[in-house]
Design a protein around this nucleic acid. Structure first.
Lengths: 332, 332
DNA sequence: GCCGCCGATGTAAGCGATTTCATTGAAATG
DNA sequence: CATTTCAATGAAATCGCTTACATCGGCGGC
C-alpha cells in the first residue's frame, strides 16, 4: 500500500497525492476529493519513515523523566502525551533512573530517532549530554535546572508561593514550632523549597530551631527516618512541612509509631499533591504542583520554538496549598 | 554526517560501512577496525529512518495501557521499557483512557510508525482494531483477554492462586464471615477474581451471603461506597477481600469512618500489590501480581515471535499473598 | 491577438541507509 | 598449472515519500 497505488487509482501523479495530504491549498478541490476517495478506499496511510527521511522532520519529541514509577511523573507523562498527540507529535519516553549511563543511552536514542525537541524533566543532567543535543540544534525545555542557551527554555516552578501559603495556614492555626523535612540536598528543587521555608520563618520572626529541620530523600522511608530523628532530638514540633508527599507519608507513619496523632498532636503538610495524597488516612494537606500544567507548558515551549514563534526563555508555574485533613489548630 | 563520509574517511564503500555495523562477520578484521575508527572520529550514528525504510524493520514496539496514571501501570511500563531498550527496541506508549476513539488513534499511530509488535495491556479492545493490526501481520500479546489467532499470544494471570492463598490465610486466622468487593463487571479480570473467590468459599463449605459481596469500580471511592453498603446491609463481616488495592484502600477508609478498626474489627486483603500498598496505614496485606514479570513475559512473547522462535500462545503468571498488617485473627 | 502570469499538475531528483549482484584476488583442488 | 571456490569488497538499485523544477492551459492586460 504505497502512494503510487493511490496515485494510480485517482489517476494523478504521486506528487499530487502527497500534496493533497500535506499542502491541500495547492490542489484543486475536484482532484482533492478524488484523491481522498482513493485513499479511503485503499486504506492508505503514509509511511512515516519515508516521510521523515525526505522531509527531515520526524514529528517525534523526547520526554526524559527520572523514574516513571515515582508517582510524580505519570501525570506529567500523560499530560505531555495528550497534548503532543493532539498536535500530531509522537513521544519517546525515557526513564533515567538517576543513572548517567542510562541518560547517555537515552540521549543517543533520541538522536538516532531524530527527535525534534526534548523535554528534560529530570533533576540534573550531564553537561556533555545536553551539549550533544544542543550541537544538533535540538530545542530543549528543562524543569528548574535548565542552563541558558539558544533554543533552551526553562519551566520555573514558584515553590515559594505554595510554601508561603502553607506557612501562613499553619501560622493562622496558631502553630509556632514548625519544622521541615527536606529532600536530597543534591536536588536543586529540594534546596529551593528548603530555602523558601527558612526564609519565610525568619520573615515571620520565628527563630530557627535546627532540631526541627532535617532531610530525607524524597521517599517514604526517608521521611519516616528523618521524622524519627526530629521526634527524638528535642522539643516536639506542632507542625511539619515536607519537601514532597512521599516524605510526608513517611512522617505521618513516624508520628503514629511514636503514639501520637496526626493532626491533633502534629500537623503535617506535604508537597506536590500526588494523586495518592487524597487517599492517605487522613487525607493529606499539601501544596499542589500541577503536573498537567507543567507538561503543557513544557510542550508549548518546544512547539513555539519549533514553529519559530517568539517565546520567553522561562515559563512560570504556580503552586498552591490544598487543605485537607492533616492540619488542625495547634494545641494550647 | 552520513555513511558516505565515514566511507570516505575509512577509504571503503558505503556497503562496507553498513556491513561492519550490521553484519561484522562479512568484513575483515582489518577493515572493520579502520571503519570503526572513522565512525568514532566522526561521531557517526545511523539514521534510523533511512534504515527502517529500506530494511522494513522499525525496531519499535507498541505498548498500549489503559491509563498510565493508574498506579498499576507505571511499573509495567518501566519493566517493558527496561527489557526493550536492552534488546535495542524502542517503545511507543499509548494510554487509551478506556476511550475507543483514542484506541483507534493509537492503533493508527502504531501502524504509521510501523511497529513490529504490540503489547495490549488494557482491558478490552474493539475487534476491528485488533484486526487492523492482525491484517498487517503485526504480532500481539494480550493480558488475559486475548483472542486466539496467528501471531497472538496471551499472558494469563493465575488470579485464583493468590486469592486461594488469601482465603486460606483468613480461614487460618479463624475468619468465617468473609466478604468481597469486586471490580467493574465489564472487566474480565475482575469477573475472574470474583468467581475464584466465590468458588473457594463454597469449596470450603462456607455459605455465600450476598450481603457480603458487592462491587466497586477499582477506584478508592468505589471501594469506599461499596464497603459502606456492606456495613449497612446486615451482619458485619470479619474479613473482606478486594478486587484491587485501590478498592481496598477505599474499604479501609469506610471501615474507619464507621468507627471500626482495621484489622481488629475487620481484616482487609487487597489485590495487585501496587507500590502504595506498603504505605497505607497500616500497610496492606494484599495479593501480589508482579508487573515486572508481566512486562517481561509480554516482551518475550513478542520477541520470540519476531525472531521466529517457537513459543506457546499462552504464558502463565502467578499471584501470591503478601501478608502485612491489615489482617489479624478473627475475634471470638 | 500576443505576452506574461498563475494555478494545477506532472517529472524526476533526492533523503540515507541496506542489500543484491558483480568483481577481484588468493587459496584450494585435481 | 588450470580451474574452482571463497572471502572481501564495491557499484548500484531500492525503500516510499517530498519537493524543486518543468509544463501546460486559461485568462487578463495592453
Amino acid at each position: 500500500m504505497k502512494i503510487q497505488e493511490v496515485a494510480r487509482l485517482a489517476k494523478v501523479s504521486t506528487a499530487t497525492v502527497s500534496r493533497t495530504i500535506n499542502t491541500p491549498s495547492l490542489v484543486s478541490a475536484q482532484t482533492a476529493t478524488r484523491v481522498w476517495k482513493a485513499i479511503e478506499k485503499l486504506g492508505y496511510y503514509p509511511n512515516t519513515n519515508a516521510r521523515s527521511l525526505v522531509s527531515g522532520r520526524s514529528r517525534i519529541l523526547g520526554l526524559i523523566v527520572s523514574d516513571i514509577t515515582n508517582p510524580f511523573f505519570p501525570e506529567l507523562v500523560k499530560g505531555f502525551e495528550d497534548v503532543a498527540i493532539q498536535q500530531g507529535y509522537e513521544i519517546l519516553i525515557s526513564s533515567t533512573d538517576y543513572d548517567s549511563d542510562r541518560m547517555a543511552i537515552c540521549v543517543r536514542r533520541m538522536l538516532e530517532r531524530k527527535v525534534e525537541g526534548v523535554a528534560i524533566m529530570t533533576s540534573e543532567m550531564d553537561k556533555h549530554l545536553v551539549d550533544q543535543l544542543a550541537d544538533r540544534n535540538v530545542p530543549m525545555v528543562f524543569l528548574d535546572v535548565g542552563p541558558l542557551g539558544k533554543r533552551i527554555s526553562n519551566i520555573v516552578v514558584d515553590y515559594a508561593m505554595g510554601i508561603n501559603e502553607a506557612v501562613d495556614h499553619l501560622l493562622k492555626l496558631g502553630h509556632r514550632r514548625i519544622g521541615f523535612i527536606g529532600g536530597p540536598p543534591t536536588l536543586k528543587s529540594a534546596r529551593i523549597r528548603r530555602t523558601a521555608f527558612l526564609r519565610l520563618l525568619s520573615r515571620h520572626g520565628i527563630g530557627r530551631d535546627s532540631r526541627l529541620v532535617d532531610a530525607g530523600d524524597h521517599t517514604v522511608d526517608g521521611g519516616l527516618a528523618a521524622m524519627v530523628r526530629v521526634l527524638d532530638s528535642g522539643p516536639r514540633p506542632t507542625a511539619m512541612l515536607a519537601s514532597n508527599d512521599l516524605t510526608a507519608i513517611g512522617m505521618m507513619r513516624a508520628v503514629r509509631r511514636a503514639g501520637l496523632d496526626v493532626p491533633r498532636d502534629i500537623s503535617i503538610v506535604g508537597f506536590d499533591d500526588i494523586r495518592l495524597a487524597q487517599f492517605t488516612e487522613p487525607p493529606l494537606t499539601t501544596v499542589r504542583l500541577s503536573r498537567g500544567e507543567l507538561a503543557e507548558r513544557a510542550f508549548h515551549a518546544l512547539l513555539s520554538d519549533l514553529n519559530g514563534e517568539p517565546h520567553g526563555a522561562e515559563e512560570r508555574v504556580e503552586t498552591h496549598l490544598v487543605v485537607r485533613d492533616t492540619t488542625c489548630p495547634a494545641r494550647a
